Deep mutational scan, measured.
Amino acid sequence: MAAAAAAGAGPEMVRGQVFDVGPRYTNLSYIGEGAYGMVCSAYDNVNKVRVAIKKISPFEHQTYCQRTLREIKILLRFRHENIIGINDIIRAPTIEQMKDVYIVQDLMETDLYKLLKTQHLSNDHICYFLYQILRGLKYIHSANVLHRDLKPSNLLLNTTCDLKICDFGLARVADPDHDHTGFLTEYVATRWYRAPEIMLNSKGYTKSIDIWSVGCILAEMLSNRPIFPGKHYLDQLNHILGILGSPSQEDLNCIINLKARNYLLSLPHKNKVPWNRLFPNADSKALDLLDKMLTFNPHKRIEVEQALAHPYLEQYYDPSDEPIAEAPFKFDMELDDLPKEKLKELIFEETARFQPGYRS
């Protein structure tokens, strides 16, 4: 834990890192770190609560700039109880001085990944967590956004079992017609939660990839272990087919990539493993919904509104309290091709509203 900075004593240090967030945020305490930044909790002297502050230093890398800009653009436009918001952003007053960006968010005690390492969940908890994931996802999908990296560590939890989806750095506007060349190379989302079509096709992607990830998360809540822990690309596919069985001819016809289709045709026939054999203690309604989410063919996979209306979630289902976005989200430009200098300018502009004396 960093010592509390005395008023006016300059930035606090946390594990050798400068955290320049005073005077409003003090009493910093280390939480963890990701690929390009550290997260601390801090005391907000204005709202009198502890908050989470993520320090991001992305400006050396085009990919990190892209992810940072995506996350900020999306989260500043989203407003939903099951999606983490941005409360404040701290950065230098000029673009030349801006080396880091500090993002202030609600402090959540833990995440689903940490929880599943230590606790076996009751059916009631599984049901409530799944409902909140789908409630947040309904809003995301209504904005025409794909999260693309749903996994237990991106689901934040607090002691009252509130759940918030975080990390929109890989999110995209849904565009089933656009052929994202190089899709697989830039697709760094965790393999275990990846839909089979991501490994088999490169053309376009749809909201059904997020539903697949939610199915993987439900299976993990039922058993405290990942359902498809593939060691590499082909191993991942083999794990999936080992449980779902061989795809039907109709399902194979959806695979545009001939090499991928021929690979699947070359494999020995596998039978589907019954879900109640894998999860003998699970609620039968939970397994019915799991089956509809972990469907090989993305066109037959359940959609988020149908999933919310499934009998497993009937005690929570309330369409009048499951809000959607006001308007579909649009990125003005494809960020993939922009140089990091341009992305830095866009991050600077996007964060201006939090600067003292800002006038829109």
Rank of each mutant, 00 (worst) to 15 (best):
Q249G: 06
Y233D: 14
V214R: 05
I89D: 01
A92L: 01
P23D: 01
P274Q: 15
G22V: 15
Q249K: 15
H232N: 11
Q249H: 14
S266V: 01
N224S: 14
I31P: 01
G37P: 08
K114R: 14
L343M: 13
R359L: 09
H232W: 01
I31M: 06
A352Q: 13
R91Y: 01
S29K: 04
H80S: 05
S223N: 12
I90K: 01
Y316R: 02
R24Y: 04
D44H: 06
N271A: 01
Y312K: 09
H141E: 11
G242F: 05
V101T: 12
P11H: 15
R191N: 07
V188G: 13
D291I: 03
P298H: 15
I83M: 05
Y25D: 03
G215Q: 13
C40L: 05
A309S: 14
T181P: 08
N82S: 09
I240T: 03
E96A: 10
K164I: 15
K330C: 01
M199E: 03
I72L: 12
A282N: 00
H61V: 07
F78D: 10
A195W: 04
D20S: 12
A2S: 12
I243G: 03
D175P: 02
E109F: 04
I74C: 09
G85C: 15
E33N: 00
A7W: 08
V46S: 03
E60L: 11
R191S: 08
K54R: 07
S202Q: 13
L265G: 03
P23Y: 00
A4R: 13
R301V: 06
M108F: 04
C40M: 01
L346T: 12
A325H: 00
I103P: 02
Q132D: 08
I256A: 09
I103D: 06
A309R: 06
T94Q: 08
D283M: 02
L265Q: 14
N253W: 10
S246V: 01
D20T: 11
R148G: 13
E350W: 00
D235R: 09
L289P: 00
G10E: 10
P339D: 12
P23W: 00
R148N: 08
Q236C: 09
S360F: 08
Q66A: 06
Y25C: 13
K330M: 15
I209V: 12
S142Q: 05
S360G: 12
V49M: 13
D318C: 02
L163W: 00
R301P: 06
A282Y: 00
N238I: 15
Y30W: 02
S57T: 13
A260I: 00
G22E: 13
S142W: 04
L157I: 11
F19T: 12
L278E: 08
N281D: 08
I209R: 13
P311A: 01
D288T: 01
A260F: 02
V14R: 09
E322K: 14
K117L: 09
D88R: 03
K207H: 12
K272I: 15
D321P: 00
E60R: 11
K151Y: 04
T206M: 12
Y64K: 05
S153K: 09
T295V: 04
G204S: 08
Y317W: 00
A4T: 11
I140Q: 13
T181F: 10
P298D: 02
K340P: 07
H310L: 15
T206A: 09
S57H: 00
R359I: 01
L137E: 06
D20G: 06
I126S: 10
S41L: 10
Y358F: 14
L134G: 11
T68W: 01
S41K: 07
A35N: 11
R91I: 02
N253M: 13
L28Q: 15
K330I: 03
L134P: 09
I347E: 13
S57Q: 03
S202H: 10
E220F: 09
A286P: 00
W275M: 14
N253Y: 14
D210T: 06
G85P: 06
K342D: 05
I165L: 12
E71C: 02
P23T: 13
L287T: 07
I56E: 05
K203I: 15
G215L: 11
K117I: 05
S57N: 02
A35F: 08
D177S: 08
H141R: 09
A219Y: 12
K55I: 14
L200N: 12
V145S: 03
H125N: 15
